[in-house]
């Protein structure tokens, strides 16, 4: 009997961790894809993520669209924003700089510029304050499990979508011929081009997929959190770096594993440890991994970097 509430809490925290891990997975997948294939460390990923939440807010607050159409439009919008960065910046940098390191650094800086522009647009439109889609677009309901534990329908949706997206991306990259083209471009863009792979189109579509994944995460999180602001994207970006490093750059499976690992670790700290140290956990994991296994937990990267 005395153990009952504690067990309920424990179950609840486990659910919390899984939901959190799912959001992180969705966020990290796109970042990992862009970095692993095109060597673009896209610091605008967090801004795109918030941009999608903002689009949903704009599309739904006057009741113009319901949840699913708004989700789709927002994902396309997020994908388009990322493609715009690719077309307007990354592509030129890639051809301008023969030196890979220089190109990577330039793209990093360009993506920061992109993040600032997107953030500024959202800030201006929202008056730089808190925003969120109306609660009417998605009726959040809680299903009670044993004890005090429960899970809401949006949380279930997040977990299901994250698993589907992760499995889908993994299979796509591993199995499909387009995935093969993506891997080929990741390994050696010049040879791929000579073999008939349209490198610039693969780059554009990969960035679109990466952006749309950020958008998917952004919309689901906006509904789950109810309120967002521009800075939220930055927070996720930092945790996502931790995920990429812990999981191994470019590995879908590694990213998923690392996302849930970090989520569980952070939730455990909140539940049973000094809560304010939660953010430190991610960086502690980065340090440990860098010391013990610098190539990440999943060393054999799928979309390998040369």
């Amino acid at each position: 009997m005395p153990g009952a509430p504690a067990a309920g809490e424990m179950l609840q925290q486990l659910i919390n961790a899984i939901v959190f891990g799912s959001v992180l997975t969705l966020f990290a997948l796109g970042l990992s894809l862009a970095w692993g294939t095109l060597d673009v460390l896209n610091l605008a990923h967090g801004a795109v993520f918030i941009f999608a939440g903002y689009l949903t807010y704009e599309l739904t607050r006057q009741g113009a669209l319901s949840f699913v159409p708004a989700l789709i439009v927002s994902m396309v919008g997020a994908g388009a924003a990322t493609v715009a960065l690719e077309v307007l910046a990354f592509r030129f940098i890639r051809t301008r700089f023969a030196n890979k390191r220089q190109a990577e650094l330039s793209m990093l800086v360009a993506s920061i510029g992109g993040a600032i522009i997107i953030d500024q647009v959202v800030s201006n439109e929202t008056g730089a304050t808190t925003f969120g889609p109306p609660s009417s677009i998605f009726k959040v309901r809680e299903y009670h499990l044993t004890g005090s534990a429960g899970i809401t329908n949006i949380q279930i949706l997040i977990v299901v979508v994250a698993v589907l997206a992760a499995v889908g991306l993994d299979q796509w990259v591993r199995r499909s011929r387009q995935g093969r083209a993506v891997r080929a471009v990741a390994y050696d863009p010049v040879t791929s081009g000579l073999l008939g792979v349209n490198v610039s189109f693969v780059a554009i579509s990969t960035m679109f997929v990466a952006g749309a994944l950020a958008g998917l995460a952004g919309v689901l999180l906006a509904v789950n959190l109810r309120a967002e602001e521009v800075a939220v994207g930055q927070d996720y970006l930092l945790t996502a770096f931790a995920i990429l490093i812990v999981g191994g750059v470019g590995s879908v499976r590694g990213a998923v594993l690392a996302a849930y690992l970090i989520a569980i670790a952070e939730t455990a700290v909140v539940a049973y440890g000094p809560t304010q140290w939660r953010d430190g956990i991610a960086f502690l994991l980065i340090l440990l991994v860098l010391l013990v296994r610098p190539q990440g937990l999943f060393a054999k990267a799928q979309f390998q970097r040369a």
């Binding site: 925290q13 939901v19 969120g132 999180l221 959190l225 939220v232 930055q234 927070d235």
Partner: peptide, 29 residues
């Protein structure tokens, strides 16, 4: 931290002991 964006674990912790009131001294969203 005010940058926190994952609250469900916090909320579970806040509800423990069934307090009559919960204070949320945060800023922003």
């Amino acid at each position: 931290p005010s940058t926190t964006t994952e609250f469900s674990s916090i909320v579970t912790k806040l509800e423990t002991g069934k307090p009559e009131a919960i204070g949320v001294n945060m800023i922003g969203p």
